[in-house]
Write a protein that binds this DNA or RNA. Sequence first.
DNA 1: ACTAGATGCGTGCGCACGCACCGACCGACG
DNA 2: CGTCGGTCGGTGCGTGCGCACGCATCTAGT
Lengths: 178, 178
Amino acid sequence: MNDLFTKLEVAAWGGLVGAQGRLFLRIEDDLRRKSGITHAEFEVLLRLCFATKSRARIQDLAAASLLTRSGTSRVVERLVRAGYVERAGAEEDGRGAYAVLTKAGREHFLTAAGQHVALVRREFLSKFSDAELEQLAAFWRRIDGHEPPKDPAPRKPQRSRSTTSTTASRIKGRRRRE
Amino acid sequence: MNDLFTKLEVAAWGGLVGAQGRLFLRIEDDLRRKSGITHAEFEVLLRLCFATKSRARIQDLAAASLLTRSGTSRVVERLVRAGYVERAGAEEDGRGAYAVLTKAGREHFLTAAGQHVALVRREFLSKFSDAELEQLAAFWRRIDGHEPPKDPAPRKPQRSRSTTSTTASRIKGRRRRE
DNA sequence: ACTAGATGCGTGCGCACGCACCGACCGACG
DNA sequence: CGTCGGTCGGTGCGTGCGCACGCATCTAGT
């Protein structure tokens, strides 16, 4: 906090971590209490609800969210157990699997979404003018690499999350597969 | 995505969830690979490093982060096992416990912090002008309730996270302690 | 047609974390 | 001085998720 970051950087970065973390806690908590679903589950239901024929491939759901394929697989599994979606094999690709929204799933999602949207508006959107929201949207695009500030986005090869360790063994011991 | 949120709201809120989520994944991943610590561990080390006498109470560390006390207790436990901090009972309060930064902990943190800061600058801070960073900081304050847009921040009583369930049983069954 | 590699999905395992609870302890009050 | 409610930190248990891997399937090359 002293000479690592400047004051401005602390305010901007630390503020992002803190404020946004607290905001998400509030919102996820509300989602759980009111609708009994996690944010990941909500997102999957949302994609399905607006997908053609109310169905989507697991990998597409994964790509559209922040989850890995295996994580998405489990989310779908939970939703299946809850009766909100059903699995269906893909005819055009024997390996593939669709998640299909059920009637109960759609209904539950619409209820949940109403409350969720209301809270997001109250906790976040309502605090900014339209011009500011526009600006925020532009900021997110910049972070994502589009709308480059310096370098021209060198093409993302794949989605990789912590693969090879280069330095410093994990704190708890237990290296991958030794 | 259609009539739940307006386009602008999707861009602002969805952008926050997506862009910021991906940003955090990149940064946490880097922290793990290069320094072998999680973001929570990093934050605890940071607080300790800039604390007087390099020590802090567990509850203060918890209050300063997004973790609960129990979570903080485990983070400290991991750091102890790694040799980065030591525990010490509080003389002034028999219940209390201090986490104290060791020499190795300080050194490791400084190395980690250098790389971490560099990445945060590259991935986030460098994409904005100083004026924009200032503005972002102001936005975070607004989200946090200070600098109110409407209501005058009604005082948070405690830190509560998902206590009583009001609606919709958890998806997986298993209500709390029945 | 056969085989080698790639790809989609599911699963075993491990980790991080929250909640509920416990024992130790503090402070106030009778 | 004893008691009693509140607080501190730690622990048992459950959950969500990622990684490594397995199986089934697709695709291309021979």
